[in-house]
Amino acid sequence: MSRLQAVISATNGVFGDFLARSGNGLAIDFGLRDAHGAPVAPDRAALATAFPAAGGDIAIFLHGLCCDERIWNAGNGVHADADSFPARLTREQGWTALRVRYNSGRHISENGEAFAELLDALQTNWPVRVRRIALIGHSMGGLIARSAGHHGLERGARWTAQVSHLICLGSPHHGAPLERFGHAATRLLDLVDITRPLAVAINARSAGIKDLRHGSLRHDDWNAHDPDLVGGDMRRPVRVLPEARHCAVGAMLGDSTDDPRSRLIGDGLVLPDSAAGRHPHRSLCVPFAPADTVLLPALHHLRLVRDARVYGLIARWLSA
């Protein structure tokens, strides 16, 4: 079953928008999952049953593209294990750790809106009074957390004032080179009759992947134009959670930011400046304080969810 779920999660990442639009049963719904991967409804009775030791401090973990909540497991087991980031935060600091699963092929803004609605329900139905909320996202998960904050602030949601931390691990805040290369390759292949079918096949990749071209987090970043025809950065500024400490951890394959491997391919998927939220236009910069922005050497993108140095940073930030 675990291998089948991995295939389903990967399929959702590549074609998830099509699966959702067509009503396909393989499309994943945005929602909480328990330690065994079973869905948990966000009503008071279901939450009390699934989390009998619920406390007032909630840490919510969001996976990245083509993955699911099991990526946070420290080993290769199906179920959550004692050495995972969520389990350690619960054991060592008393946070109640929650995991979500979502269709990573949908637009980031659509998942952000769904996450904002889930946070509305949690704030209302959590078995005890919510004191603090920490949002911890790996890769695309960090972008969805930021998008949810924007949606929540636009609606005046109460939970936005309870988010104490927003921690992004290897999130491509300003896009990923691989998607920009895919967009450019599609445009070139479409120019010649013999390669046009290949362009059509490549262009079938999901809306979630296309959002990673620049890191689009708002509905109006994409619904006012055709993202397949526009290659430039059309993003609008995103509202920032006012009470949250914004923290970023990036990785690089090289031993320093000057290493050619770090400059050219970053952590294998995300470049250092993108992970750190840096951008030439101030309105698009993510407000990570220098002291809360860490780039770790000799670390691959997918290892960010299991590296001891990363957990040490998260634990230190959440204990402050």
Rank of each mutant, 00 (worst) to 15 (best):
C67I: 03
L119F: 12
L284E: 05
E154P: 05
G312L: 06
R205C: 05
G94I: 09
Q123L: 10
R146P: 14
G149P: 02
G152C: 06
I167H: 02
E117Y: 04
S206Q: 07
S9I: 11
M140G: 06
V240R: 07
A276M: 08
I167K: 01
L143I: 06
A46T: 15
A289I: 04
G105C: 04
D255M: 02
R309H: 09
D81W: 08
S171G: 01
L19C: 01
R91L: 00
G208D: 08
I265A: 10
S274R: 04
L269V: 13
L65E: 04
W95F: 12
T293E: 14
H300M: 13
L191R: 15
P287S: 09
A114E: 14
S274L: 10
L198H: 06
F288D: 11
A54L: 13
A176G: 03
S319F: 02
C168H: 05
A224G: 11
S9C: 14
A48C: 08
L299T: 08
E117C: 04
I209W: 08
G25H: 03
N125W: 03
P280F: 02
R3F: 04
L271Y: 03
A35Q: 14
W222D: 05
S147C: 11
I314H: 03
A10C: 03
L191Q: 15
P242N: 08
G175W: 02
L65T: 12
A38C: 07
A10P: 00
D267K: 00
I202T: 07
A10T: 11
W317C: 03
V238R: 00
I194D: 04
P172C: 10
A53L: 09
L217A: 07
R101E: 10
H214Q: 02
R205H: 09
L296C: 01
D233F: 05
A291Y: 02
H225E: 05
E243W: 01
P242T: 03
A38P: 01
A54M: 12
S319E: 12
V200G: 08
D259A: 08
A201C: 10
Q123E: 06
F18T: 14
G250M: 06
